[in-house]
Design a protein around this nucleic acid. Sequence first.
DNA 1: TATGAATGAGGCTTCATTCAT
DNA 2: GATGAATGAAGCCTCATTCAT
Lengths: 194, 194, 194, 194
Amino acid sequence: MDLIMEESKRDTKLPAILRAALELFTEKGIYATTTKDIARRAGVSEGALYRHFQSKQELAEDLYLTHLSYFTAQLDRSVLVYDNLKERLEALIEGCFRFFDEDRTLFTYLILSEHNELGRTSRKVRHIRHLVRDILAEARERGQVREGDLELFGAMVIGIIIRVAIFRIYGLITGDLKTRAAEVSDSCYRFLAP
Amino acid sequence: MDLIMEESKRDTKLPAILRAALELFTEKGIYATTTKDIARRAGVSEGALYRHFQSKQELAEDLYLTHLSYFTAQLDRSVLVYDNLKERLEALIEGCFRFFDEDRTLFTYLILSEHNELGRTSRKVRHIRHLVRDILAEARERGQVREGDLELFGAMVIGIIIRVAIFRIYGLITGDLKTRAAEVSDSCYRFLAP
Amino acid sequence: MDLIMEESKRDTKLPAILRAALELFTEKGIYATTTKDIARRAGVSEGALYRHFQSKQELAEDLYLTHLSYFTAQLDRSVLVYDNLKERLEALIEGCFRFFDEDRTLFTYLILSEHNELGRTSRKVRHIRHLVRDILAEARERGQVREGDLELFGAMVIGIIIRVAIFRIYGLITGDLKTRAAEVSDSCYRFLAP
Amino acid sequence: MDLIMEESKRDTKLPAILRAALELFTEKGIYATTTKDIARRAGVSEGALYRHFQSKQELAEDLYLTHLSYFTAQLDRSVLVYDNLKERLEALIEGCFRFFDEDRTLFTYLILSEHNELGRTSRKVRHIRHLVRDILAEARERGQVREGDLELFGAMVIGIIIRVAIFRIYGLITGDLKTRAAEVSDSCYRFLAP
DNA sequence: TATGAATGAGGCTTCATTCAT
DNA sequence: GATGAATGAAGCCTCATTCAT
């Protein structure tokens, strides 16, 4: 009984606000999204936003930091199951694409958006960029990567993942990305392998 | 005499406006750039902008369409010199990277910015995306590309070019990109070749 | 038992609210003080304020009217003990300064603040202004005040009391004001005496 | 002709804005005055305020610093004509009261308002408080002031000037204050003289 | 023609007050 | 009765665009 009351007290409009903000930030960018937009889509008043966040900016940053931490941690775990480059690339790319298929909006906000608007905040958190760098560094130690600048290779892997997702959004590619994971990771392996 | 002075005034201000706008749009985005910003950096009054453009939006679009057309046309010519995938990739990537080295701001505005802010306008013009698509389609006809979805391959090539440039901007890669062109086009060829 | 707890709860919160409000109104002014400020400093919820007062304005007015009535009545009594101007001035000024020393915040709220924010309300209650006027009128009848406009003299006496207190707050004067009472009332007497 | 054009260019709404702001700040306080109030009374749009000032606060501070500097400098000069306490007090008080009669609103804003809202800004400028302090210090050196704390005496003189003006505003005193100057400065002299 | 003051719409944020729990 | 999330009305400020000079 008490529990229920507590529950219902907590029955806040926060989730609706978060979802509305995420969608709009992704669709139009943080700047172009107005607080009124968010409020309307969330079905609340504008003032309600400010019970949960001090500013629109803070809302955007919270959304970014919270979810990106979670996503990267998950991806880290998936990758660490394996110890060779080929399987790690597969795990990485499949993890990304599965996430894209499950919540395209969130993936777009976290990974595809360039986020000049978040400023330094976006550097505070582990990103797939760091994961890729780590994967390649370890692979190099084990002799699983051919000669060449690792940062350059990292840029290429990440560029591939991101642009494939963007093509999917624009409809230049169709269907679930998951079904493309093997082909993409195979391609990456082709240019990385010794 | 008056005429000449007026002429030269006009000659003198438009380029300043265009350059100022380009820089600011690239640095902060179109939305976040104010007309006052542009006027101040160009050394003209705010009102003066409206002698050349009907709106800030039009200025942004003009800038995009004009330069992108020109760049893509140049790149088209460079690529058409060759008739095989390997050399065409080299021409493409070297063209892009050389452009990046020569005018990073313009390259960023044309190719790296996602430009939600330009809306449909950004679809009106030939983009390197189309060039890559054409290169791959012809290569496929000539049996120079292995099996696999061409759109997917295209996404990957473009993703690589773009992300390498972005890494350069963030300082994760250093030096002129031109020096990386061979390594990058070689990598592309490795995963595209039959 | 429950009743007692509730009773004591009520007993406990109203004074906290009143004190918090008084302090904040004095520090920042009524306008600049938010209900959230008051609630936080009093350790209650914002909603709780509305159990005791219908509005922030009413709280401010209550605070003013209640305490000022009480203070002026006390001062009236102190002054009426005497029947000559000299001693009455001493009683008046010592009463004011002692009050200042004992509860500077309350004195400031009642006497030093100009209270545009209270509007007409602040005219509803007997103020030291009226007491001074009465003292001087009686003194005039008894030939204890020299020639001159009594209202002007009243303004001067009150101005002296108030400004000395303000100087104390700004630290331009130091120590308990009580120790200055004799010197100040003597000065007043000097310019009032025939 | 050119001159006229230049003049008319400068024919800005700034004076109207300054006057409207001054009046409203004096009537209702800075806080309680909205930018909309100011704009309406000045007959301009709200945005127009921001061409001349960065914020409402800056407008309030400018108004204060500019005019107070000017007023105090004038008063300084009037007082320095004399070299004895009696005449200096007369010059001081007559200067204040004449100013009050000429522009009551401005005098109120500069001298009568407590201006918690201006914060530290209000300490940046010479105030009649400093002038009075200087007058008394010199008089003490010349043996023209009786024993006693000079700061306390200063507080009393200023308190008298201010409160007389406030009584005039409330209508407790009537007529031009200038006509009261002699009586007031005489009273001050009575309690200051040895 | 060039300027920059002005406009007016709209953005972000605050806050007294209400109300469901 | 107490809580604090929510409301809705302002408040301050920004900015693309216009227009008198």
